[in-house]
């Protein structure tokens, strides 16, 4: 691994990313501050004002309780996430390896093209806007699961037939084949699907909450939309954005740790040895 000055540095975690990221961030915030001078604080708040109102939201000073609404949104995201991963993985593996794949591939691809907003409207019309979990979770699961299924499907298809032939020639049991070949081969796809599912679930839960719920961050955002308060919409979104970003990074680190066998992941010992 090389630092930005070309010096070799031995650090466990992507240090070379820090400084460029920092520059971009500073440039972005500077631009924001500059633009905010031309708008009313209600439309585009300056950084100081934004920090103040974000703090007031998180500390509970706003008319809506942040803890209450954020907690319900988090629960919805987590419940959706579990359903998305389980259904998506089963669908994806079935599409990749089973004889029923012909029945599944086209329907899943069609689902993939269906807009989440359409799901939200239909489900609200059918079930009303008062369910705590059902509508939001269902919309999110319906909209995100096809992405995971397609991702896992590609993973299942990429499993090397040569390895399976090797396993058969050495008389490995089915359990051993699953444990040592199928599951590890799918792991990269499970991780990337998991991160994708999390990122999409958070966005779509919010969309679903806007149309289909009277509680949750999406509901509050919708309220401030009605009140024409762009600054409050941003202030309510920032804490969840930061939390989701943190979770995404954490997942990425866990992923890196579990792939020590891939040379490109761990740069420190990656020089290939010669025979």
């Amino acid at each position: 691994m090389y630092g930005y000055l070309g010096k070799r540095v031995n650090v466990g975690y992507d240090s070379r990313l820090y400084q460029p990221t920092l520059y971009t961030l500073i440039a972005f915030l500077g631009l924001w501050q500059l633009l905010s001078l031309f708008f009313s604080p209600r439309d585009l708040p300056g950084l100081v004002h934004l920090a103040e109102i974000t703090y007031s939201v998180v500390s509970g000073a706003d008319q809506f309780s942040f803890v209450e609404h954020a907690w319900i949104t988090t629960q919805r995201i987590l419940v959706s996430f579990v359903f998305i991963m389980v259904i998506g993985t089963v669908l994806g593996i079935t599409m990749g390896v089973s004889k029923y794949k012909e029945f599944l591939t086209v329907p899943v691809m069609i689902f993939l093209t269906f807009p989440a907003v359409v799901w939200a409207f239909i489900l609200v019309m059918w079930f009303g806007a008062l369910t705590t979990y059902f509508v939001v979770v269902t919309v999110t699961v319906l909209a995100v699961t096809p992405y995971v299924a397609v991702n896992i499907w590609k993973g299942a298809e990429s499993i090397d037939d040569d390895l399976l032939e090797m396993a058969h020639s050495f008389d490995l049991s089915t359990t051993a084949i699953w444990r040592h070949i199928f599951v590890p081969a799918l792991m990269p796809f499970l991780y990337s699907s998991g991160r994708l599912a999390f990122a999409l679930a958070w966005k779509l839960s919010l969309v679903a909450e806007i149309f289909g719920s009277s509680v949750g961050i999406g509901f509050v955002v919708h309220y401030y939309f009605g009140a024409v308060r762009a600054d409050m919409i941003i202030a309510w979104s920032i804490p969840m954005m930061l939390a989701m970003f943190g979770i995404e990074r954490a997942l990425k680190i866990v992923e890196k740790r579990s792939f020590a066998w891939r040379p490109e992941v761990d740069d420190v010992h990656s020089e290939v040895k010669t025979a």
Binding site: D160, E165, M187, W261
Partner: peptide
């Protein structure tokens, strides 16, 4: 080809 499990 060696046909090894690269993750082991």
């Amino acid at each position: 080809e060696p046909r090894l499990l690269n993750w082991r």
